[in-house]
């Protein structure tokens, strides 16, 4: 609560101080030489502190992407863990520059003046997890069940819609504290745990016996998990196009490992690759207009990597999630997914 109040106060003073210039937030980031980015404090695979207290994960890499593109150094991302509803308030109140914490883009949220939804980094959907022991194979058999969900999230609305559309009665346990919520589910206080499918996969790993739980086939909502920044055209453009660089890298098979090799021999690569890295390239022109480091596209790829690299590193087959990128909606359009690389020219 203290955070909310202090952020409200901050909002008032900030609103008083800053006139609507193009790029004031981007200027502020460069002036402070630091980009404050909000993540979930405890979401394995997406953002968890490592043994040194540094946040690691899929979502945190997009904080690092933005810092690499804007400041030329991914290490200048000041990554902070914060709860879901406080993160949006903090952003609106100028307490952070951007958030990469699985926030679903919705019309009304985007219509709010304090937040800009910039680039969808993960296409997710809301699902149900159950203990295998209750012997249910479809969510339609959940008549009378108790559902645990995070307090204050869109999850609550999706469940209400889905169950009432099918006139299935249910009871909700809207628990804010994650430990309390998961303890409630793992101990059978609720029959079902509802959240985004990836969050379910990640939370399942927190159980002593992950194999005792399964995810039902129904995916009941569209959850485009999107990077949110403070409204600032230049900052939005920088973040959006940095993400497009990561997608383009996948299209052309560029990774953090081979990017130096490619640049050493740019002449023998397609025009589109040249437009990413050459000195008089499209990215250099963008850099001048947006006020980014001249080689920002190279910095993003060499320090963070291509989109598929980030995905594989944190959520892929080698990880506990074992997700196959091309089986999810997050594959490139060419591979049947929804990740569409915009042209950089």
């Amino acid at each position: 609560m203290k955070l909310v109040l202090s952020s409200l106060v901050a909002a008032m003073t900030a609103a008083a101080a800053s006139p609507a210039l193009a790029g004031p937030v981007l200027d502020e980031i460069k002036e402070k030489d630091q980009l404050i980015c909000l993540v979930n404090p405890n979401s394995p695979g997406f953002s968890v502190p490592d043994s040194n207290g540094v946040y690691q994960g899929f979502n945190t890499d997009f904080c690092r992407m933005a810092a690499a593109a804007i400041l030329g150094d991914a290490g200048k991302a000041d990554i902070r863990g914060i709860g879901f509803s406080d993160s949006m308030k903090t952003l609106v109140a100028d307490g952070a520059h951007m958030a990469s914490r699985s926030i679903t883009a919705t019309g009304t949220r985007d219509a709010d003046a304090g937040m800009a939804f910039v680039a969808t980094t993960f296409y997710d959907g809301q699902g149900f997890m159950i203990p295998k022991s209750i012997g249910v194979t479809s969510a339609t058999q959940l008549e009378g069940a108790t559902v645990c969900a995070e307090d204050g999230s869109t999850t609550l609305l999706n469940i209400a819609d889905w169950f009432s559309d099918r006139t299935i009665s249910y009871r909700v346990e809207n628990i804010a504290d994650k430990t309390a919520r998961l303890e409630a589910f793992f101990n059978g206080k609720c029959d079902v745990y509802a959240s985004d499918v990836t969050a379910l996969l990640s939370d399942r790993l927190l159980s002593d016996t992950p194999e005792a739980y399964t995810i039902l086939p129904e995916v009941i909502s569209a959850e485009p998990l999107t990077l949110v920044t403070q409204p600032d055209q230049a900052l939005e453009a920088a973040v959006f196009w940095a993400f497009q660089v990561m997608l383009n890298a996948d299209v052309y098979g560029i990774t953090s490992d081979n990017v130096d090799q490619i640049i050493a021999d740019l002449g023998s690569y397609p025009k589109a690759v040249n437009r990413l890295f050459a000195e008089d390239s499209a990215t250099a022109e963008m850099a001048e207009k947006l006020g980014l480091p001249q080689d920002w596209a190279y910095q993003v790829i060499s320090q963070v990597g291509a989109y598929s690299e980030v995905f594989e590193k944190h959520l892929g087959k080698e990880t506990a999630f074992g997700l196959e990128l091309n089986e999810t909606a997050n594959a490139l359009t060419a591979d049947g997914g929804q990740m569409y690389a915009y042209p950089i020219r």
Binding site: F84, R109, D151, L157, A176
Partner: peptide, 25 residues
């Protein structure tokens, strides 16, 4: 108001959800 932590829908809990849905903080 600490009830929100363990899932009792008190005034604080519903008010938080209303803020997130309506964005009228």
């Amino acid at each position: 108001s600490i009830a929100i932590a363990v899932g009792y829908s008190d005034l604080m809990s519903v008010s938080g959800t209303v803020i997130n849905q309506s964005f009228k903080p």
